[in-house]
Amino acid sequence: MLKKKPKIIAFCCHYCAFTAADLAGTMRLQYPANVNIVRLPCTGKVNANMLLQAFVDEADGVMVAGCEPGSCHFLEGNVRAVKRVSFAREKLSEAGINPERLEMFHIPASEGPLFAKSAKEFTEKISQLEKKGDGEADEPDSDETGVETGETDSREIGAEKGEPD
């Protein structure tokens, strides 16, 4: 079953993406209200624990939004974040969660419109995944049989196979 609105958590860097989100608001740009922003001093603060915990706490999608490469206030935080997001995606995949639900973005402080666009597109992507039954097994019947969506869940249980899907 499709949830009404996917729950999105956006871990945003104070110096760029968070400022861009603020700017989007100032510019009166609309972006989905289900995107919940967590402000970080730098995306270099994120780690796999934090990202996986968001999913444990029922997030449907997680954005990590940092500065563009080369413009990190702390020099390399955003580059490290890319690696950590990549690592967390592997861990999600192993646990049977579609890694597409976690994505890294680079959004400069001046790009309010880009933040709004990214938030919209990511929400749309997660909504599509939910619609396809590519979510967590919170609806056991549909997830097991694929009857609700008229298709078999293409995502095998990675944990059972012992390999990422």
């Binding site: 969660i97 967590e136 944990a159 059972e160």
Partner: peptide, 14 residues
């Protein structure tokens, strides 16, 4: 990390 993975996998597998 492993605990969270297990929680997610457990939920996924009911």
């Amino acid at each position: 990390v492993l605990s969270r993975q297990l929680k997610l996998a457990a939920r996924h597998n009911n």
